[in-house]
């Protein structure tokens, strides 16, 4: 098992390294560089611009920039913001809790609602309830999260003249304000996962409930509830877990747009602002951080599989 975990970690590092290479190759395509943007309104001379480029290391070839980036990265230095001169790591770590709160809430909402609705639909298959749940799922799968966020805002504003707080306060500082602030974006982000998980739970439960294995369990006289939760559900959880992994990327991406819309100072806002400012070190490092975040979570999900399904565990311990 330890070897398997190590293998996954090595694989994760390889992918992360490839992301870094991709990022540095991509920035060579930039038509005008950051210095032009920064100095656009200052009337700086070409010499000043050149001096600034060499100071920022932009005049060196890409592979050199990549090399020094990797060299520093190993020591925990991912560069500094062009504008505030703060280390990007600090900027990112300061803001990541908000993004993780938002993303985490969204995934929890989506998973819990999705499982509940999926189970209801599967148990009441073929009824009006089943139909309603499935229509709801397809509908929510189709409303983009930022549209849903906007529509909820519009509805609340029109009917209750209510709008969420503008200034973020942490959950320990002012829980009510935090909850009010987080609720709508988390719901908007979570519904798409909810829809996907509902569909997956339903279809996978139906498949499992019809399987030979479940028929045997039933024949042994197990109660319907036991059949559902202990036996069929266990098999469905794997499928759902896979889906959560897929949703993760969407949710992480979605935080960018919803943080912006709800003025939540998370990492999404950080990246977005950096993009507008052409603050390259921040954009580059954040892109890599996001990839790292995603890879780590995928590894955790992978390990969860092995935890849930003994067959996977056995296969992996036997050495793949």
């Amino acid at each position: 098992m330890i070897r398997y975990v190590l293998g996954r970690l090595v694989y994760g590092l390889v992918v992360l390294a490839l992301v870094t290479v991709f990022v540095f190759v991509a920035i060579t395509f930039i038509p005008s560089d950051a210095v032009d943007v920064m100095l656009a309104d200052t009337g700086a001379t070409e010499e000043q611009a050149a001096a600034m480029r060499s100071e920022l290391g932009l005049d060196r070839p890409v592979w050199e920039q990549l090399g020094s980036f990797l060299g520093n990265a190993v020591q925990g230095d991912f560069g500094r913001s062009f504008y505030t001169d703060e280390p990007v790591v600090d900027l990112f770590l300061d803001r990541i809790p908000i993004t993780l709160q938002l993303g985490g809430l969204a995934l929890v909402i989506g998973t819990v609602l999705g499982l509940v609705l999926g189970i209801i639909a599967a148990v009441r298959r073929g009824t009006a309830t089943d139909g309603a749940v499935r229509v709801t799922a397809v509908t929510f799968l189709s409303v983009p999260n930022f549209v849903l966020g906007l529509l909820i805002l519009t509805a609340l504003g029109l009917w209750f003249a209510w709008s969420p707080p503008f200034v973020y306060r942490g959950p320990t500082e002012d829980f009510v304000s935090w909850a009010q602030h987080m609720a709508i974006p988390a719901i908007a982000l979570g519904t798409a996962s909810m829809a996907g998980i509902t569909r997956m739970t339903r279809s996978s439960l139906l498949e499992n409930l019809g399987s030979q294995y479940i028929r045997t369990v039933r024949a042994k006289g197990a109660g319907e509830r036991l059949v559902l939760f202990k036996h069929a559900m266990r098999n469905s959880v794997i499928a759902v877990l896979t889906l959560i992994g897929v949703d993760l990327a969407t949710v992480l991406g979605g935080t960018v747009i919803l943080e912006q819309m709800f003025s939540l100072p998370g990492t999404g806002q950080l990246v977005y602002q950096a993009v507008l400012d052409r603050d390259y070190p921040v954009v580059i490092a954040c892109t890599i951080f996001y990839a790292g975040l995603f890879i780590v979570t995928m590894i955790i999900i992978d390990l969860l599989y092995a935890f849930i399904d003994p067959r996977i565990r056995a296969a992996r311990e036997a050495g793949r």
């Binding site: 992360l16 992301v19 990022v23 993760l248 990327a249 969407t250 892109t287 890879i295």
Partner: peptide, 18 residues
Amino acid sequence: DAIQSVPPLVLLLFLAVV
């Protein structure tokens, strides 16, 4: 895998800079 490990919208933002 590398391309897919960056959340789509973040990757799109990055490419918007490029």
